[in-house]
Amino acid sequence: MAAAAAAGAGPEMVRGQVFDVGPRYTNLSYIGEGAYGMVCSAYDNVNKVRVAIKKISPFEHQTYCQRTLREIKILLRFRHENIIGINDIIRAPTIEQMKDVYIVQDLMETDLYKLLKTQHLSNDHICYFLYQILRGLKYIHSANVLHRDLKPSNLLLNTTCDLKICDFGLARVADPDHDHTGFLTEYVATRWYRAPEIMLNSKGYTKSIDIWSVGCILAEMLSNRPIFPGKHYLDQLNHILGILGSPSQEDLNCIINLKARNYLLSLPHKNKVPWNRLFPNADSKALDLLDKMLTFNPHKRIEVEQALAHPYLEQYYDPSDEPIAEAPFKFDMELDDLPKEKLKELIFEETARFQPGYRS
């Protein structure tokens, strides 16, 4: 834990890192770190609560700039109880001085990944967590956004079992017609939660990839272990087919990539493993919904509104309290091709509203 900075004593240090967030945020305490930044909790002297502050230093890398800009653009436009918001952003007053960006968010005690390492969940908890994931996802999908990296560590939890989806750095506007060349190379989302079509096709992607990830998360809540822990690309596919069985001819016809289709045709026939054999203690309604989410063919996979209306979630289902976005989200430009200098300018502009004396 960093010592509390005395008023006016300059930035606090946390594990050798400068955290320049005073005077409003003090009493910093280390939480963890990701690929390009550290997260601390801090005391907000204005709202009198502890908050989470993520320090991001992305400006050396085009990919990190892209992810940072995506996350900020999306989260500043989203407003939903099951999606983490941005409360404040701290950065230098000029673009030349801006080396880091500090993002202030609600402090959540833990995440689903940490929880599943230590606790076996009751059916009631599984049901409530799944409902909140789908409630947040309904809003995301209504904005025409794909999260693309749903996994237990991106689901934040607090002691009252509130759940918030975080990390929109890989999110995209849904565009089933656009052929994202190089899709697989830039697709760094965790393999275990990846839909089979991501490994088999490169053309376009749809909201059904997020539903697949939610199915993987439900299976993990039922058993405290990942359902498809593939060691590499082909191993991942083999794990999936080992449980779902061989795809039907109709399902194979959806695979545009001939090499991928021929690979699947070359494999020995596998039978589907019954879900109640894998999860003998699970609620039968939970397994019915799991089956509809972990469907090989993305066109037959359940959609988020149908999933919310499934009998497993009937005690929570309330369409009048499951809000959607006001308007579909649009990125003005494809960020993939922009140089990091341009992305830095866009991050600077996007964060201006939090600067003292800002006038829109």
Rank of each mutant, 00 (worst) to 15 (best):
A6Y: 12
A9T: 12
A9G: 12
V14H: 11
R15C: 03
Q17I: 09
V21K: 03
G22T: 02
P23K: 00
Y25E: 02
T26R: 03
Y30K: 08
I31C: 15
G37C: 15
G37A: 15
M38C: 13
C40M: 11
Y43K: 11
N45M: 10
N47A: 12
N47D: 14
N47R: 13
V51L: 11
A52T: 13
K55A: 07
F59D: 09
E60W: 13
Q62V: 09
T63E: 13
Q66W: 10
R67K: 15
L69G: 07
R70P: 00
K73Y: 10
L75T: 02
L76P: 05
L76W: 00
E81D: 15
N82L: 02
I83V: 05
I83Q: 02
T94V: 09
I95E: 09
M98H: 11
K99H: 06
D100L: 13
D100T: 10
V101T: 08
Y102D: 12
V104D: 13
Q105L: 12
Q105G: 07
D106S: 00
L107S: 01
M108Y: 12
D111M: 01
D111R: 00
L112M: 15
K114S: 10
L115E: 01
T118P: 14
T118E: 05
H120P: 13
H125C: 03
I126L: 11
F129Q: 06
F129L: 14
L130P: 09
Y131R: 02
L137W: 01
L137A: 07
H141L: 15
S142T: 13
N144R: 10
V145E: 15
R148F: 10
D149R: 08
L150T: 02
K151W: 09
K151L: 06
N154Y: 14
L156V: 04
N158F: 04
N158H: 10
T159S: 15
T159W: 04
C161G: 00
D162I: 00
G169I: 01
L170A: 10
D175H: 05
P176V: 13
P176D: 08
D177C: 09
D179A: 14
D179G: 09
H180A: 05
T181S: 15
T181N: 12
G182V: 15
L184H: 09
Y187K: 03
V188Q: 05
A189M: 02
T190C: 05
Y193L: 11
Y193R: 09
R194N: 03
A195D: 15
E197W: 05
E197F: 06
E197A: 05
M199I: 14
N201K: 15
S202K: 12
G204I: 05
Y205M: 12
I209E: 12
W212M: 05
S213G: 03
S213R: 15
V214G: 12
G215I: 06
A219K: 11
M221D: 06
S223K: 09
N224E: 11
F228G: 00
G230R: 04
G230W: 06
G230Q: 00
K231F: 08
L234N: 04
D235H: 11
Q236F: 09
Q236V: 09
I243D: 02
P247G: 01
P247Q: 13
Q249M: 05
L252Y: 05
N253L: 10
C254G: 05
C254K: 03
C254W: 08
I256R: 11
N257H: 09
K259A: 12
N262D: 06
N262P: 03
Y263A: 03
L265I: 01
K272T: 08
V273L: 12
W275L: 15
P280T: 15
P280Q: 10
P280I: 05
P280K: 07
S284F: 08
S284H: 10
K292G: 10
K292H: 06
L294A: 07
T295H: 05
P298D: 03
H299Q: 12
H299S: 08
E303G: 08
L308S: 00
H310P: 08
Y312I: 10
L313P: 09
L313K: 01
L313I: 13
Q315N: 05
Y316C: 04
D318I: 08
P319V: 12
S320M: 11
E322I: 01
E322Q: 04
P323Y: 10
A325H: 01
D332H: 07
M333E: 04
E334I: 00
D336G: 00
D337V: 13
E341S: 11
K342A: 08
K344P: 08
A352R: 11
A352F: 00
R353F: 07
R353E: 10
F354N: 08
Q355Y: 03
G357E: 12
G357M: 08
